[in-house]
Amino acid sequence: MHGFANPARFLRIARWLTPLLLLSGIVLSAGSLAWGLWRAPAESLQGETVRILFIHVPTAWLGMAGWSAIAVASLVELVWRHPLAGIAARASALPGAVYTAMCLISGSLWGRPAWGTWWVWDGRLTSMLVLLFLYFGYMALAQASENAGQSRVAAIFGLVGAVNIPIIHYSVLWWNSLHQPPSISVGNSAMAPDFLIPLLVATVGFSLIFGGVVLTRMRTILADAQAEARLRRKAQATEGQA
């Protein structure tokens, strides 16, 4: 495991993996979205509106997966003091927040024609909005503690905030909500293959883009740290000479 702790080794892999993830993700999501927009059938009750599914579900999954990644990376950072884990956690925050916001916006655009309202304060919608604010809080903490040179606070916040993820998932089962229960569970689908297959492709595509953005941001953080360290060494060296 500590083999990946070496930034040089990580960078060697990330250099070719980043464009590969981004490009394959863009191809898959563009294809499945075009399919969802023009080829997928209308739904028997909802009609054409169902096409928002192909944006809404992948972004919802990644909004939740993003925080799960932050929580796992924070755990590794706290317990094993793995240097890349903290960087990975920080790198997941922005794409996670962007996808959560896109999930809320697409859900609102779906709710208006399907339910007759832009927004309700039911369990699912409220817990998803809480997730967006958790992301904002995490990004602020990570930014602040980065300057102070310690990231323990952000990692603890990342772990504690993970309690919201099962709440989001089970909100539609625990409480009466306007949002319907999940259509897909392990080995079981209430969704016809005409919707399910393009949805799965879109989810894979969006996830590849997510992975590519995480790698991009990890490389940014590493490059900034390396440049800063080098400048500091040089400043000390010139001071020593004078």
Binding site: P41, A42, E43, S44, L45, Q46, G47, V50, L53, A114, W115, G116, T117, V120, L178, Q180, P181, P182, S183, A190, M191, A192, D194, F195, L196
Partner: peptide, 15 residues
């Protein structure tokens, strides 16, 4: 009134 739909997704042609 708000409409609530269920978790089933069925193509229109199949209905």
């Amino acid at each position: 009134l708000l409409a609530k739909h269920d978790e089933r997704y069925v193509p229109r042609e199949m209905k």
